[in-house]
Design a binder for these strands. Structure first.
Lengths: 349, 349
DNA sequence: CTGAAAGCGCTTACAG
DNA sequence: CTGAAAGCGCTTACAG
């Protein structure tokens, strides 16, 4: 068996109480004793048994992040940064991958059973239930990031600000035959979804977002493939001068379709994705995209959790992270006035 | 507080022992009693306290996977599939992200302290130490996947079989000015690294792999950017007809450099990446790449861990997963005989 | 400043 | 088939 506090106590001829106090930094040990204990514990590479500690104190490991298996690469990267950053604060940070969103409740309960200080649910949209009570009995802070656990602390990604800028760009640069990929399952509560931004830009311009501009995009597996298929078909029968491809992966497929159909038309069709994948800047024709400030999100998450831990009963908080259009080669704009117009400040909330 | 076994026992007027036996599926409870207990436990959404269970039995949560923060997307996907697949077998599966490989030892010790049934270390190359003893005292099975914890059960990715095929392709199709990106830190123990395959193909063809064919590729941050920079420079002063770009991300940068320099030369330069990212098929010019059979790796990992748990002291095992070239538009080959030659069977071990 | 003792929630050998 | 009891390793209120 591995070494325990009582082994150290025996060796050093003190009581386990003293060893515990010394190692956990509590008062009530002489500084000299503490140093002796710490030094010996290090020598024999002692580590407290987290299970025993958790059982005794009722508080388990620090943070557990719950995220779905199929999520865009940006979400994976976001979650990992969050995890390593919060590891420092919480002492430990594990993640749990949900293979099927319908099992979310099972996973959360499993996470709660560990009595962690905090749980983050990230990027899960298809399940909505309230766990405030369970969180309270476990004294666990729960933060919902880009997920729909309403009622808990929430960080919402406002995708509409970016798509609004994009749509303005399309309209201001005279695109009259746009195509907007529309995910039938994108929930658009409260106007933060992609579609809301598009609708706002049309309304603002006094124009109508005609139903024929929208194309259903509902990938079961490969976003790029579906983007390619949809657009190959579309190009055969329609003229298109602007595309919003829902995300960068799909935009990649669209780009390939355009390239196969007619390489020359590449520069005539404005193409915009979403997510700003690391690769998007380095495509042969770099891809315009929409992204959020990752640092802002990370900081928000960190501060909201710390706040919640200080007071589990304080009123729930909600932070909104806006998105922004990034103009690259796939939708070149040179006119400075248009650019000014696109990024003009608006407050939709 | 949340509900405990003794609460159920009280309510049902039985002893905690019986409740424990009923819930854990152990013998020694009448079937009728068991059903009554299970049904009540479900009603009140009882979950055992994992900390208490772990403390009592000396065995903690199922599986912990340790992986580095900066890894290619394919590795992320691989790890998540592994995690969800093994979750079923182990009952629980958490992952731990290492922000800095130098901290690996700290993370493994932290994981071991949880007394998990198994630990997987995945994709960590810069630390090598032996933890057999610690694993034995914790009765934890440790599997090293594409990492260098020699002495433990290991799954090795043999990158050389793919690069050997690629190099044959270059040579057989008459490329005389190749460029091979070479990572200075790629450890090449036992001939499984990218470079080994290239060397073997040259040797086999009776040709010399000249030093000027190799270019140092050592990305600190963005692989695509570095690929782009290296290749933009290269094109200015040399003629090139074949490129191995180390990975798909770098290949993307190379592709962009080629495209910027002279779009027409696109089809004259054979370009191959590594990893077979999901996007690589959908680039305007689809990217040739090298990949491994993911299913084989997952199955191996699963069976090796299960084996190890049955017998912690059995001799350590080692499995080798070969890689294969995938020929796409970035290195078109039409001659059937050449294709036959490229994929000719060889045994280098 | 230090130690003896209780108890967190569970499981399991032992007794019936 | 069922229950009483011990104990996993830790922490903390209590006593000195």
């Amino acid at each position: 068996m591995s070494i325990a506090i009582k082994d150290i106590a025996l060796k050093l001829r003190v009581s386990p109480s003293t060893v515990s106090r010394a190692l956990s930094g509590k008062d009530g040990v002489s500084e000299e004793m503490r140093q002796r204990i710490i030094s010996y514990a290090e020598d024999c590479m002692f580590q407290v048994n987290p299970a025993a500690q958790a059982l005794r104190t009722g508080k388990g490991s620090g943070l557990i992040l719950i995220a779905p298996m199929n999520r865009p690469e940006v979400a994976r990267i976001r979650d990992e940064i969050l995890l390593t950053k919060l590891h420092q604060f919480f002492g430990s940070a594990f993640s749990l991958t949900v293979d099927n969103e319908e099992n979310l409740e099972y996973y959360i309960k499993m996470a709660l059973a560990e009595n962690p200080q905090a749980i983050i649910v990230s990027g899960i949209w298809h399940q909505n239930f309230n766990l405030l009570e369970a969180c309270n009995t476990h004294k666990t802070a729960l933060l919902s990031i880009d997920s729909c656990l309403a009622g808990h602390d929430e960080i919402i990604i406002d995708r509409s600000t970016g798509t609004e800028q994009m749509t303005r760009m399309f309209l201001l640069s005279g695109c009259s035959h746009p195509v907007y990929f529309k995910h039938p399952e994108e929930l658009d509560t409260e106007g933060y979804g992609r579609l809301s931004g598009i609708q706002r830009a049309y309304k603002e311009a006094g124009l109508e977002l005609k139903p024929e501009y929208c194309v259903e995009f509902n990938p079961k597996k490969n976003d790029s493939q579906l983007g390619y298929e949809i657009f190959s078909e579309l190009l055969k029968r329609s003229y298109v001068d602007a595309v919003f491809a829902f995300n960068d992966l799909a935009a990649l497929g669209v780009q390939r379709a355009i390239h196969s159909f007619n390489p020359a038309s590449n520069s005539e069709i404005k193409l915009v994705g979403f997510d700003d994948l690391p690769i998007s800047t380095y495509l042969p024709t770099s891809l315009s995209s929409i992204s959020i400030k990752l640092e802002t999100l990370i900081e928000q998450a960190s501060s909201m959790l710390q706040q919640r831990i200080l007071d589990l009963n304080a009123p729930r908080e909600r932070a909104i992270i806006p998105s922004t259009l990034l103009i690259r080669e796939s939708s070149r704009i040179t006119d400075r006035r248009i650019i000014g117009e696109i990024f003009r400040q608006t407050n939709h909330n």
